[in-house]
Design a protein around this nucleic acid. Structure first.
Lengths: 194, 194
DNA sequence: CGAAAATTTGACATGACTCAACTGGAGTGG
DNA sequence: CCACTCCAGTTGAGTCATGTCAAATTTTCG
């Protein structure tokens, strides 16, 4: 079970066996059921979560009660509300499970401890979040510069597996359009006007 | 000149004098003139850049020749194309100076060296980029959920000083709208219909 | 099977864009 | 100091992409 995590760390750093043992003692295994919350808005996020198996969505609800999906989560992805996690303030985000989901979690206190014991992990998480940042910038650029149909195309190319695991109206939300618009876009591209 | 950088590091970590000396030897001071490129698309970004004084804009040009501003840069901000920097591939971004701009730059090779000599810097940059990531996610949420007028309001609240240093059409670009739309929005909010 | 959720479709409304013209400064050179 | 240009900003008219509201249809799942 922890070997998935080890392989994941090994992508960017190399840990000795002792170092990795330090890790496993602080990461807690947990199972969530489909539709169960991992984080609910108003609560402080105390954990960073690594997905072993399953699928999650992270979203925020606006003043009008509309959900906006910030990100999805799949196997080997990290999820959480970094803002709440870092500042200790209540989260505006909700994270819930689209499927039964198994995760490894570490609390912020334990993560701090771990950084001290295994400084190399600072490097790992630096690299990890740099990549996430690059990807966030790409998404911003797409939102600024491309029409919805094109953003949808990019989405299914970039995440070919998500489409099969989440309903379309959630993809619409992720793209910043209504389910109706997405439906029309999909009709267009599947059956171009002859 | 380097003391600004030291203060900046000190926000998240504490460096010994020797450690800091290691840094100063690898960060190169450089001046750019107004309208000069710091990075031009097609080139590989070899440096991370810390702004001592001045103002920059980072933008990408789309297929139709329209500029989209990814981010601005002000004093004590870091700029660069992380994607190009990390992968060594040519950048799609341009960075140029809105004013005469003074910076400290470090090459990726030197930064790697520095990480080895001063591992604590991994921590610094991890924290730095975590904050940048949180901020990027906020921007994504705004783009998904809020109309242009509201995004503009947020922008001038979040960055009250940028408005005085860059022309409005660039702010429009950052917000993902046309200069014309921004102009109408500003009229509305300054002189609400009586 | 039956209820709830997801998707689709249609008619209409609207926010933002495009194109084009105009205004007003800022800088430049004669 | 004026004429000229360049650039930013504004304004108007028409268009287009996407949203809204409402209803019909299909799919999912208890």
């Amino acid at each position: 079970m922890y070997d998935i995590l080890l392989q994941h760390f090994n992508k960017y750093i190399h840990l000795t066996e002792e170092e990795f043992t330090e890790c496993t003692s602080l990461f807690k295994y947990k199972k969530y059921r489909k539709h169960q919350y991992i984080l609910q808005n108003g609560n402080v996020s105390h954990n960073e979560t690594f997905i072993l198996k399953g699928c999650t969505r992270t979203y925020e609800i606006d003043d009008k009660g509309i959900e906006h999906i910030i990100q999805f989560g799949l196997e080997t992805w990290w999820i959480g509300d970094l803002h709440s996690f870092l500042t200790g303030t209540p989260s505006r985000l909700n994270i819930d499970c689209q499927e039964d989901t198994e995760v490894l979690q570490i609390s912020n206190m334990d993560l701090e401890k771990l950084y001290e014991k295994v400084p190399r992990l600072e490097r790992f998480f630096r690299i990890l979040i740099q990549k996430a940042y690059v990807s966030a910038m790409d998404r911003i650029y797409s939102n600024l510069s491309k029409p919805a149909a094109e953003r949808y195309q990019e989405f299914i190319e970039k995440y070919p597996h998500i489409g099969q695991r989440v309903p379309n109206h959630q993809i619409a939300s992720y793209l910043g359009i209504t389910p109706q618009s997405l439906s029309r876009i999909r009709n267009q591209s599947i059956a171009p006007k002859k």
